[in-house]
Design a protein around this nucleic acid. Sequence first.
DNA 1: GTTTTTGCAAAGTATTTGCAAATGG
DNA 2: CCATTTGCAAATACTTTGCAAAAAC
Lengths: 131, 131
Amino acid sequence: MQALKYSRQRESIKELLMTRRDHPTADMIYTDIRAIFPNISLGTVYRNLSLLSEIGEIKKVSTGDGVDRYDADTSPHNHFVCRQCNAVMDLDMDDIGSIKSAASKNFDGIIEDYSVNFYGICGSCKDNKEN
Amino acid sequence: MQALKYSRQRESIKELLMTRRDHPTADMIYTDIRAIFPNISLGTVYRNLSLLSEIGEIKKVSTGDGVDRYDADTSPHNHFVCRQCNAVMDLDMDDIGSIKSAASKNFDGIIEDYSVNFYGICGSCKDNKEN
DNA sequence: GTTTTTGCAAAGTATTTGCAAATGG
DNA sequence: CCATTTGCAAATACTTTGCAAAAAC
């Protein structure tokens, strides 16, 4: 069984992620973290992101474009994905937790959780189109 | 501009997908379609699945495990993903289209659509555990 | 000292793409 | 014929992994 030792790299990755709201990919994190650890490897970044999300300290966000993103905000919230600029942003919206019970109603398995992604054109891309 | 010519391969892929409810991956489709076209290539399967989903005849389903799945049912419905057997199944549940307006409320962009995935343990995996 | 983590490089998946030949209209 | 699609192979994108050295405890 693993005992989980402290690592400066892992701590740094988590701290970086906590400062961001843009749901960066492993590669974006790797690029930025190299300002602090110039020799860190992409493998280490991936390993730590996996580990952190396994222990629930961060969340993996899949938008369907083939690249995983990460989020230090583990509280329940939903994401919007812009089809034009590919930005992923948090939505400020009412709780939709009731969809979980709606899904459980006629289902014979156990529904543990869910993820919702909204897709469309973000505010700034929309404005750029109009002008 | 492309004129979209008929192809037996594309037609066959679509027909195969229409007979299935298990949301197969490109590779699963490739395996099965080779019973009909032994020389078809995986590239052709991918190209046709992309094309079919671009023109809206099928839908791509991303469950977050890194492999895309495909669904010939393009009507609005939600999916459940079993964490044990990785099966992807349709949920028989009330319409939750209201989440779209909930998301649009405080949002300055345009929300075109959304996708919801539920995760947990399916009925048969749950039963196997208990026995 | 023992276990975990790292950096590096290589390998593993899933998907896309260039190109000449085949097919469709 | 001309445009699109195919099969094949190579390329790409993302992520995981084996291993010896370094760090943590």
